[in-house]
Amino acid sequence: MIKVIVDMDKCQHYGQCVYEAPNIFKLNEEDKLEYLATADDSELGNIQAAVDICPMQAIQLIKE
């Protein structure tokens, strides 16, 4: 399993992560970020890409 943590104080809801890992991140109707806190290992590459691309460097990934 992968644990996903987003620092919502840092997040500016740019939504770049949504394109890298669409199964994990989305912008809701108010353009605010929503995400799944845990993910399957098959999402590792996508979540890693989301971590890298986040303009605010607000996403953390923990492998469990």
């Binding site: 939504g15 394109y19 353009d31």
Partner: peptide
């Protein structure tokens, strides 16, 4: 400026 949801649909 803002409107992320709309902006992203044009991407």
């Amino acid at each position: 400026l803002g409107m992320r949801g709309v902006l992203n649909t044009y991407r």
